[in-house]
């Protein structure tokens, strides 16, 4: 079953004519993802890798049936693009764009919630359900179909940990990058809940980092609500306070959001925390 996306997912690409949008459209199609249309305002009528391009989501959906959108639109226009997808009834929106102003995201988040849509990201690598569908930018060949779900705030660190799993013959049901921004559409808890209810997922890896209190809240949720085992990794245990460590959301502010308190909260909830990516691989292997 996997979560969020599978063979049946039908995708439009917003920002399809840009460098990244066009490149990853080809990559996703090669993986087998059903890309039904692309959208770039002012560039309707062309096609990209055989995918028809429209001026608006509304026009694209008048001709094609889709239930998911992936967004590569530049940061100043990305909030608007998310709302356009949601306004036209798209249920799942994946936003890859990095650098969206936080005030834009506050409004966008509210709009997404009011319309009962799901937003993954922004500033994320997207979603992959291995051997079924990829709505994202991750290097597909490191993934294998299997029974471990992954939820992460980071991109390349996720690839590193997936690689550790795949090399140990542990496949993945679905990998979700929820994004490295302070305001993301979806948090750890919603993803954990989906994995808990997914019959193809037997265990979950949670990859967090400094900043905010999402990991602490996730720990509490796992302790109370989850029957499946969870292994965690937290990046930034040696990060100094008040420095933004690459991600907009990765900052220890006024004594809040450091890795140590996250690790403590997870351990207190009975969750094993790997000290290094390869230790995460070993811990998951020991569960199998």
């Amino acid at each position: 079953m996997a979560i969020l996306i599978d063979e049946k997912t039908r995708v439009i690409v917003q920002g399809i004519t840009g460098r990244e949008g066009s490149f990853h459209t080809a990559q996703m199609m090669e993986y087998g993802t059903h890309i039904v249309a692309g959208v770039t305002p002012g560039k309707g009528g062309r096609d990209i890798h055989g995918v028809p391009v429209y001026d608006s989501v509304k026009r694209a959906l008048a001709e094609h049936d889709a239930n998911c959108s992936i967004i590569f639109v530049p940061a100043p226009f990305a909030g608007d693009a998310i709302m356009e997808a949601v306004h036209n009834g798209i249920e799942l929106v994946v936003c890859i764009t990095e650098g969206i102003p936080v005030h834009d995201m506050l409004r966008t988040y509210r709009y997404v919630k009011q319309n009962d849509a799901t937003l993954i990201g922004p500033n994320c690598p997207g979603i992959i359900s291995p051997e079924k569908s990829k709505v994202g930018i991750m290097p597909a060949y490191i993934f294998r179909n299997g029974n471990v779900g992954i939820v992460s705030r980071s991109g390349t660190l996720t690839y590193q940990i997936v690689d550790e799993l795949t090399r140990r013959d542990i496949g993945q049901s679905t990998c979700v990058g929820i994004g490295g921004d302070p305001i993301t559409g979806t948090g750890f808890i919603e993803m954990l809940e989906m994995f808990e209810n997914d019959d193809e997922t037997d265990a979950v890896v949670l990859i967090g980092e400094i900043g905010g209190t999402e990991e602490e809240k996730a720990a509490e949720y796992i302790r109370k609500e989850m029957s499946k085992p969870v292994v965690a990794f937290i990046a930034g245990i040696t990060a100094p306070p008040e420095k933004r460590m690459g991600h907009a959301g990765a900052i220890i502010q006024k004594g809040k959001g450091d890795a140590k308190s996250k690790i403590e909260a997870l351990k207190k909830a009975g969750i094993e925390v790997g000290k290094t990516p390869s230790e995460v691989g070993k811990l998951v292997k020991s569960l199998m």
């Binding site: 991109g155 660190l157 490295g180 930034g236 460590m245 990516p277």
Partner: peptide
């Protein structure tokens, strides 16, 4: 490094 999470994990190591 490439990517914030990977860099942070590298610093930790």
């Amino acid at each position: 490094g490439n990517g914030a999470g990977l860099v942070m994990a590298t610093l930790d190591l």
